[in-house]
Computed example of a mutant assay.
Amino acid sequence: MKKIYLLCFLTVCISCNSQDKRALVGETEYQQKENSRFKDASKSPLDKKDLKNFKGLEFFPIDSTFIVNATFTKIVDAPIFEMATTTDRKPLYKKYGVLNFIINGKELQLTIYQSQSNLASEEYEDYLFLPFTDDTSGEDSYGGGRYMDVMISDINKDGTVALNFNNTYNPYCAYSDRYSCPLTPRKNHLDIEINAGIKVFKKH
């Protein structure tokens, strides 16, 4: 009889844990990973009070309209410059290239950047930085803009690269004043609503 009780207890515990995990499940693997990372106190950018009440990040519904193939044009001999941030920190970046693409029949362009500090890291040397604002910024999405990671290795030989705006993320400054975040350059504003990816974080 004790074994039966023990088995029932373990089943209930497993069920509770499964429900807890299901509460963080997103529509995609990307959303699931983000929610899991934000729930982990050792990795989360959330302040303690927000982490305590954290249930999951809010995303726009997945929309294939915002998965596009962009034409990449590399900027040759671009100078290194100090990028403005939310603090006095001035990290070094370089304009890496220009991306041209179409969403809902509208021709759009973004400049993509390369962090100079990433060049010293084998883990991040392949990363490019794509910050942008759009007509949802300051309302449904974070006012300071959103970011997207693009890999150099993702750029095809024909000069195209896939951009998935469903996989955008907020700078850590959207969650806490403890961080210093690059400011989105004005030229990287999209005159269109990007109703995809991460939404503005609502603090508790």
Rank of each mutant, 00 (worst) to 15 (best):
K106C: 10
D88S: 15
I192V: 13
V200H: 14
F101T: 12
G197C: 07
Y172H: 13
F132C: 11
L190E: 01
V161K: 01
S117R: 11
L183S: 02
F132D: 10
F132W: 11
F81P: 03
K43F: 07
V161F: 00
E123Y: 07
N35V: 03
Y169K: 04
L99D: 10
G159F: 06
E58A: 14
S176M: 05
K39G: 03
K3P: 08
Q114W: 02
I103N: 12
D47E: 15
F81S: 00
F59I: 10
K39T: 04
K48W: 02
F101N: 13
R146I: 00
P185T: 00
Y113F: 07
A41H: 11
V98L: 15
A174I: 04
V161E: 03
G105L: 11
F59Y: 15
G26Y: 01
A70W: 03
L92I: 01
R89M: 13
S18M: 09
S15Y: 05
D63W: 07
N118T: 03
L130W: 00
I194K: 06
N35Q: 04
F129I: 00
S176Y: 00
G26W: 05
I192P: 10
Q19W: 00
D88W: 01
D77N: 15
S115K: 00
K52R: 01
S153Y: 04
L110Q: 11
N17H: 05
L57G: 11
I112A: 08
V76F: 12
T11K: 07
D154P: 00
Y96V: 02
T160V: 02
R37K: 14
L190T: 02
K94S: 10
A196P: 09
